[in-house]
Computed example of a mutant assay.
Amino acid sequence: MSEIEKGSTVEGRVPYQAISERSPLKLPGGARIAVWTIVNVEHWRPTAPMPRTVLPPPMGQPLLPDIPNWAWHEYGMRVGFWRFLDVLGSRGLRATFAVNGSACRAYERACRAAHDAKWEFIGHGFVQKPMHRIEDQSAAIFDTIRAIKDFTGTAPRGWESPGLTETDETADLLAEAGIEYVCDWVLDDQPVPIRTKTRSLTSIPYTVEINDVVMSAVQQQPSDEILRRGRDQFDRLYLEGAKRPRVMAISIHPYLTGVPHRIGYLEKLYDHILGHDGVLMWTGAEILDWYLGQIATASIQAE
């Protein structure tokens, strides 16, 4: 009986393995590091409690509709998103676009611009709500995949749960729905397999460290934190990548890093990264295909 069948769902899905004891991976051209950017686009409804708040409610009592906090997020979709498009496009970079299924209609113009820029679309839930609060996860996953496929013509290969939340059954449901990789398991600097009841998913290294929700909304760090922390993160992974390649994620939201006092630091971070040789600026799907190719090659060599 497998660990998952025994009920040890989390640890059974991702058995422990030290990075120093794995079969070596090789990036194309002898590169040291693959860097991917995840732009998160979410649909917040003003009639529901806000997923994040910047302004506490008067007298501590939540009020709906929550106009100031909804408008804080809405600014990102009206203005901040377009700064991301300029910053990435001017540097020839493509993002992975983690989008709520409902946002494909609510923010059709922004989603169209992301698709025109050839960004990779991945599922980010149908609405911005923890998976634990979804009455029918299977339906929500299906609705999200269908919304993205209807919009882009292609079903998403990747998934990032709202708030990185998963219940014990989420990974199984994602695998059954055809999702190939997830961002929720922030436990490594290289892709790792995740066991499910039907087939393997792949965890692509995501981040709660170089993530503006953590830096700006939760920890309330200064505006330049994404540059200071991001640069240090990159420099260390680049150094280590000389022996074993690493993956670095940069996770950004239009209402946070897309504001005027932060966007310049994101530009400086990209310019620092692009000033190094041996760097691949990839999407999640490109990282997945590289990793699966490495695994297939290693399997053939072992036979």
Rank of each mutant, 00 (worst) to 15 (best):
M1V: 13
S2D: 15
E3S: 13
E5N: 11
S20I: 08
S23G: 11
P24K: 12
G30N: 05
G30L: 04
A34F: 05
W36D: 12
P56L: 07
G60N: 11
P62A: 13
L63N: 06
N69C: 15
E74W: 07
M77V: 07
V79M: 14
S90P: 03
F97L: 08
A98T: 03
G101P: 05
Y107F: 14
E108K: 10
E108M: 03
D116G: 04
V127T: 13
P130H: 07
I134D: 02
Q137I: 08
A139T: 12
F142E: 13
I148N: 01
D150W: 04
T152Q: 06
E160M: 13
E160Q: 07
L173R: 12
Y181R: 09
Y181Q: 10
Q190W: 01
P193L: 13
I194Y: 07
R195Q: 12
S200N: 11
L201P: 01
S203H: 13
I204Y: 00
M215V: 00
V218I: 11
Q219H: 12
I226P: 00
L227P: 02
G230N: 09
Q233V: 03
R236C: 02
L237R: 10
L239M: 07
E240R: 10
R244D: 06
R244P: 01
I250F: 02
I252F: 06
L256F: 04
V259H: 10
Y265D: 13
H272S: 12
T283A: 08
A285E: 14
L288E: 11
W290S: 13
Q301M: 14
